[in-house]
Every structure is written in structure tokens, then in C-alpha cells.
Nucleic acid binder design. Structure first.
Lengths: 172, 172
DNA sequence: CTTGGAATGTCAACAAAGCTGACATATTAT
DNA sequence: ATAATATGTCAGCTTTGTTGACATTCCAAG
């Protein structure tokens, strides 16, 4: 819990690295845990009333964000196996929420987009989540939001950070 | 995606609420998703080599943080059913990583604490996670860290925010 | 034009970790 | 005495992840 590491740093630099103490780091870890629970709470509550789960929400979210994305691209973003994603996508396509089009250039690829019904569900699912994040932003203020995003970015795995930045760009 | 809501706010207050735009909120949602993946990446990698999973890590983490906590308290923190937690605790006690003592005042309660072996595993599991968070903190700087924690707190469900603050205090 | 590899889909089997419901056992509180 | 609390346990189910194997389709390299 308290190896001499941080103590040495503090001895070297005084109190300026207080935010790097084990206790501060530990509290940050716990804050991530509890905040993520809040983060998923609202969509989970809605999904519990349907035949869908969090995996469906994730797929719907990123299809909405990157229309015409391919299955392979989605696999890279979500970090699950194709079998796992395919089970989710199959139900969404069957239920008419997602459309799977054969690629024009490369006909092996399937390009995914939400149908109108899918977009409606996406809206419903994400509205509560957006509201929560927006409220948190409003309460915290712009400087805190900036720091929030800076730390989150620094916490990502490098390849996921690249994917994070690629979302919403021209050619992902 | 862009209901007129935010546009109205921006019309009212100018650009000061830019950080509340749907696009900013959406990016924050995705940052949470990707960052949480990084957050769990290191312990998950270690756990994959053992017979334990993320649920064991969570139990071990909070037992380490709140020694002598009761099962009921842990249930409230983790937000799972007693059956689910019990399955995890049973293996940890059987494997000699967690000790379960009958309460002194109230003998219905079981007070949980890590054994030496459990503390060693906790250290191993959490070291990588702490290192990642500490590196993220270091790269982001103290102001960003402050904002990070402010937004995370604002994102929590109120009852979990209370539990978050109660951890590490005298009488949880 | 054949062939290797890539992208996708699908089947089967399995595991982790959540859930509900029911029930048992101590122990404490009323 | 009786009710409520804290815990443990059994059985069964669901979601979501995993591997492994195999088929199809198609692009690209030879």
C-alpha cells in the first residue's frame, strides 16, 4: 500500500506531487469504480425492461457514432470476439434495429447502420446517459471537465486511444 | 444526437457552455468507455493466469481498503447479490486469502480481512493498476487530476457517492 | 487463373459472473 | 415468544464473454 516509492518522490520535490500519493491514487481507482457504476446505471435500467443488455447498447452506440462502420472495425473498438459480437448483431438485425449492407468496394465486408427503429432506441438509451454526463459536467465546470478528459485519455491503452481519436473523423 | 436543448443553452449564455455540447458529452462518454478498458486491463491480464476473475479482484480490493468490513457492507459497496458475492468469498476463504471472523458485538456478522497471502495477491493485482493511474496522473498534472475526480464524483449515484466518501473513515 | 489469406458468419461447448427464489441457521431486537 | 437481521447455501437461469472448427466469399499475388 505504501512502498517507499512515493515517499521518495515527495522528499525530492516537496508537496507538489501530493496528488501522486498512494492514497490519492487509491481514491482515484475507487472513484473510477463508483463513477462507472453511475455511468451505466441509467441505460441498464432501461435495458432491463427489454430483451437487450449492455452489449447491445455498446454495439448500438458505436454504430450510431460511426455509421457504415464494418464488423471488423467494431470488433476492434469493442474488444470482444467476433462470435460474441455476432450474437448481438444477429438479434439486432433480426429485430430490424441494425442494417447490414454488403460493402461496395470489398464485398466481404458488412457495413452497419441503424435503421429508424434502431436510431430511436439509441436515442432512448443514450438520452439518460448523456443527461447524467451533462449534469456532471455542469456541476463540475469547464476546467474540471477538461482535466477529466485529460486523465481519461492518459489512462487508455495506446491503441484504444488511437481508436478513440479516430471516432467521428472522415476515414476511420 | 442534437436535440435543440443545448443549442438553446448556448444561445442563452454564449460559448461558455461549449463543454456541454452534445459532441463534448458524447466524447466524454466514449472516453469513459475506453479509459475503463485501460483501467481494468492490467489486473485482468494478471488474473487471466489464475483461477480468479475481476469479481475476485473487486472483493479483495475493498477488503484491503476496509479491513474487518462485514459481508453486508461489502454487498452495498459492490452492488451484487449475496449469492454472487458468496461464491467469490467462498473460494477466497477456501484458498486461504481471506479470513472470515465471527463478529464480537454482533455474532451474526462475519468480519472479513486479508490473510498475508491475500495481501500479497492484492499487492500484485493492484500494483499495475496503481501504476497506470499514477502515470496518468503524472502525465495529466495536478489540476487535471482535481477536475477528473470532481467530474467522477458528480457522475456517481448519490448513495454510492456516500459509500465512496465513507471508505477509509473511522466507522464505515 | 489458381491459390493463399482476409473478412465474415455460424455451430458447439464452455466459463465467469450476474440474477431470482427458496430455505436453513444463528443471533439480536422487540 | 416472536420477528427481524445477517449470513450461507442449493438449484436453476441469463448475459456475455471465451475457444475451436469449419464454410463462404472475395481480394490480391503469383
Amino acid at each position: 500500500m505504501s512502498d517507499g516509492n512515493v515517499v521518495m518522490e515527495e522528499a525530492q520535490t516537496g508537496d507538489s506531487l501530493h496528488y501522486l500519493s498512494d492514497e490519492q491514487v487509491q481514491q482515484g481507482i475507487e472513484a473510477m469504480f463508483f463513477a462507472y457504476r453511475g455511468f451505466t446505471h441509467d441505460p441498464d435500467r432501461i435495458l432491463a425492461t427489454m430483451a437487450y443488455g449492455r452489449a447491445h447498447h455498446r454495439a448500438i452506440h458505436f454504430i450510431a457514432r460511426s455509421p457504415s462502420t464494418t464488423v471488423n472495425n467494431l470488433l476492434g473498438i469493442l474488444g470482444v470476439t467476433k462470435q460474441s459480437l455476432n450474437r448481438v448483431l444477429r438479434t439486432l438485425v433480426q429485430d430490424g434495429l441494425v442494417e447490414s449492407r454488403v460493402g461496395e468496394n470489398d464485398k466481404r465486408e458488412r457495413h452497419l447502420r441503424l435503421t429508424d427503429a434502431g436510431a430511436r432506441l439509441e436515442r432512448q438509451l443514450s438520452d439518460a446517459q448523456r443527461a447524467r454526463v451533462r449534469d456532471a459536467y455542469r456541476n463540475a465546470g469547464p476546467d474540471a471537465v477538461s482535466g477529466f478528459r485529460t486523465v481519461l485519455e492518459a489512462m487508455m491503452e495506446p491503441d484504444l486511444r488511437r481508436k478513440y481519436h479516430a471516432i467521428g473523423e472522415q476515414d476511420p
